[in-house]
Design a protein around this nucleic acid. Structure first.
Length: 761
DNA sequence: TTCAACCACTT
DNA sequence: ACCCTTGGTTGAA
């Protein structure tokens, strides 16, 4: 353990770990020293009780064998906004904290607050510090003075030393057999650590880590393959593995989890977290994959969640952490997490709500001279500008401040917790976007892109969490206010546009597509400004299109579907949504053919040219069909990746995923719900389900792929590009006299009967 | 054949 | 706890 040197020095707070006496801080100084030193920390939680029960509670807590300090005080209750008397329990040793909480929760008639927050986060909330904060250390001795703010956009970036570690062979059968060799890389230099002799591998790795002393070990599949295997080897051979920089605690693997997030099951391998050093697995982190290290660090700063934990958690946890930080600094009691399992709304429900805005049916087919306008961060902006928060909706004081299109009203007197958390996020993201635009340095632009992307995800999920029943700070009614207002704004936008002579083609939640002959950018800018003025929300130009195609529904020919389109911007960029190419379960071969067809067709600047390019596109498709038919395509190009949504045995239908999931199970490699499996179709029509498809891993040269099935998939994916028929079919379906092509599907819950109020309290 | 049930994907 | 964006498949009727 290293004490901070004096005189004072400056550096970055990289992590904080609870110990028996307080916290240990890991600091990287500007001079490049790595320091570990202890700071005092005594976590507190609160018990809401009064009178006789209070006395009993006190006596019970005093009898516990853990040193605690009790104090009667008051804290704000979020929903009422009033002070409640509470018993503050300060636990001397962080290591006792959760045990004291556990024993307290068995006390009769008590409610616990601030009691289930991970200790590093609690420490960050209470100290005002945050991961990656730039600090001065040693003033006062052992003290840390913050020289930074989570809202700075120009904080110095710590010079982290990174080692990359990957398996020599990326593919191959999962989680069985030996480890194989490892490829390690630092400062662009690659080295292969041979896997033949495990003993030597371990000692070489130890020497390597000792010499390079990295702050970050960045792996591909470190959580589920590399580290568990190394640890197992280390145990078997009795050679300790020097992964931690600090302490000699045993390295343990976290629990693997499957959970719903945004409409789908996701699987997270149990994480392997280190002390005094980070281990991050690129393949086991949503935000790392989405926004890179820059994005991960950005989120760690604003959410105050330690980097390794943040990398492996869902974005919702991040927004919740920000809300808790705000609550604690405002003296608001943090309710216990309701613990989702039972009443967890299915992913589909959650997703529905996220789309709960207004969706039009597009005018199907090919359109020329089109502009797309998008509201900037529509939902979070609505939440802040209208003060939408669980405690501000339907408040007792402001019944006159009604939300149009809903039965709710919003408080005008008390600033809501949710808006308070979101407004600095919105502002910071805006600044990053501007910095990105004005920056010359491509490296810096990428950095800003990662950071704004990380903030975008926090903003996106903030809306979902607002309506999620089990969120600590969620309430459906607040959610309904947001969707009601968003519908209202989209309609206003449509009206303004139509008044200015634009033809409304399509609208989804926060975007609208308009056409007018001979569009020019300046006019569109005026329109956007006018819509911004009318709605009070910023709307921007996503782009001007030469043309856009809204594909028709296969189920209901003549009608288009909202989320499948292909457009060519005047900038030359192609925008593709919803079609095979964008889907993660499309085999690479099919995606490539489709891409080639699109690239060919995108030479067209208008419908006439598009038509003239059709034969060429058809040729690409025919070529692909021929290749499939001749069986010339490498299987790796035909792999279909599917995410397993349930336990393999739970499937009731012999779908390809089910067949292969069960095949893997039989081989002792049972996939977990949320995990993705790779499969190849071998005989879609085979009477024996087991022969219809097989895992890519077990596909050997004696197997062959099902040519017919793949030909079918290819046609299905690519034919719509050649015939999007919206044009050729006159809009005859509107025979009843109604313009059916703009059928509006507003999904709105039935208004709740008033009786639901009595179940509150 | 048809059709209900099932299943995955989408930002 | 359930009435659902679409597109697709499975397997029974």
């Amino acid at each position: 353990m290293v004490r901070p040197p004096r005189p004072e020095t400056t550096g970055w707070l990289l992590d904080a770990y609870p110990t028996t006496h307080g916290m240990h801080l890991w600091i990287l100084t500007e001079k490049g020293d790595r320091l570990f030193f202890p700071v005092p920390f005594h976590p507190r939680f609160y018990i809401g009780t009064t009178g006789r029960v209070l006395e009993q509670t006190r006596r019970r807590l005093e009898r516990l064998r853990f040193p605690v300090t009790l104090a009667e005080t008051e804290r704000l209750e979020l929903f009422s906004g009033t002070l409640h008397p509470v018993l503050e329990v300060t636990v001397l040793s962080p290591s006792d904290f959760f045990e004291v909480v556990r024993q307290s929760s068995s006390l009769p008639e008590v409610a616990l607050y601030n009691c289930d927050i991970p200790l590093p986060q609690l420490y960050f909330y209470e100290s005002g510090l945050f991961p990656l904060a730039f600090c001065r250390i040693g003033t006062p001795p052992d003290g840390v003075e913050l020289l930074d703010s989570p809202w700075n956009t120009d904080s110095p970036v710590p010079p982290i030393r990174t080692v990359s570690v990957a398996l020599e062979e990326e593919s191959g059968p999962a989680r069985c057999g030996s480890l194989g060799g490892l490829v390690v890389e630092i400062d662009g230099e690659r080295r292969l650590l041979d896997g033949e002799d495990p003993r030597e591998l371990l000692t070489t790795l130890n020497t390597f880590l000792k010499r390079e002393d990295p702050d970050l070990i960045l792996t591909n599949r470190g959580d589920d393959m590399i580290l568990p295997r190394l640890l197992a080897l280390s145990g078997k051979l009795g050679i300790p593995l020097a992964l931690n920089r600090f302490g000699n605690q045993e390295i343990s693997q976290g629990k693997e989890r499957s959970f719903f997030s945004y409409g789908k099951m996701v699987f997270r391998a149990g994480g392997v977290s280190l002390l005094g050093r980070w281990h991050l697995d690129r393949k086991n982190s949503f935000i790392l994959g989405e926004a890179g290290l820059a994005g991960l660090f950005e989120q760690a700063r604003v959410t105050r969640i330690p980097v390794q934990h943040l990398a492996r958690t869902s974005t919702g946890t991040g927004i919740t952490s920000m809300q808790m930080a705000y609550a604690i600094s405002s003296g608001i009691l943090v309710p216990k997490d309701k613990g989702m399992p039972e009443a967890f709304r299915s992913g589909l429900d959650l997703l529905e709500d996220d789309k709960g805005g207004m969706v039009f049916l597009p005018r199907p087919g090919f359109h020329e001279s089109v502009v797309e306008l998008d509201f900037a961060s529509m939902y979070p902006s609505l939440m802040t500008t209208h003060n939408i928060s669980p405690e501000t909706v339907d408040c007792p004081c402001c019944p006159e401040n009604r939300v149009p299109g809903s039965s709710h009203h919003l408080c005008t007197r008390r600033k809501g917790l949710v808006p308070a958390v979101l407004s600095p996020l919105l502002a910071k993201r805006q600044r990053y976007k501007e910095l990105k635009k004005t920056s010359e340095d491509p490296h810096l632009r990428q950095e800003y892109e990662g950071r704004q992307g990380a903030l975008k995800w926090l903003l996106v999920v903030s809306f979902g969490y607002l309506g999620y029943k089990n969120a600590r700070f969620g309430k459906v009614e607040a959610h309904e206010c947001v969707t009601a207002l968003s519908r209202n704004k989209l309609l206003q936008a449509k009206e303004v546009a139509e008044n200015q002579g634009y033809r409304f083609l399509h609208g989804i939640v926060d975007s609208l597509w308009l056409s007018r002959p001979d569009l020019d950018e300046a006019e569109c800018r005026c329109l956007a400004d006018e819509i911004s003025r009318t709605t009070g929300l910023t709307i921007g130009i996503e782009g001007l299109y030469h043309w856009i195609i809204f594909f028709t529904s296969k189920g209901r020919p003549g009608l288009a579907v909202p989320n499948r389109y292909l457009g060519l911007f005047r900038s030359g960029e192609i925008k593709i949504r919803g079609i095979a190419l964008r889907r993660s379960d499309t085999p690479p071969f099919i995606a490539r053919i489709q891409k080639r067809m699109i690239d060919h067709l995108a030479q067209a600047k208008n419908l006439r040219e598009y038509r003239s390019l059709l034969p060429g596109a058809r040729e690409v498709l025919d070529e692909g069909m021929k290749e499939i038919g001749e069986g010339r395509i490498p299987v790796s190009e035909l792999v279909i990746k599917k995410r397993i949504s349930k336990e393999p045995e739970a499937y009731r239908k012999a779908s390809f995923q089910a067949i292969v999931a069960q095949e893997l199970t039989a081989r002792g490699q049972a996939p977990r719900p949320g995990e993705r499996i790779s499969l190849v179709i071998t005989g879609a029509r085979d009477p024996d389900p087991a022969s219809r498809a097989r895992a890519y891993d077990t596909f050997s040269p004696d197997h062959s792929y099902d040519r017919q099935a793949y030909a079918h998939l290819l046609l299905q994916a690519c034919e719509p590009l050649l015939d999007f028929s919206g044009q050729s079919l006159p809009e005859k379906k509107s025979a009843k006299g109604k313009p059916l092509d703009l059928l509006l599907r507003k999904r709105q819950r039935q208004p709740e009967p008033a009786e639901s109020e009595k179940t509150m309290i």
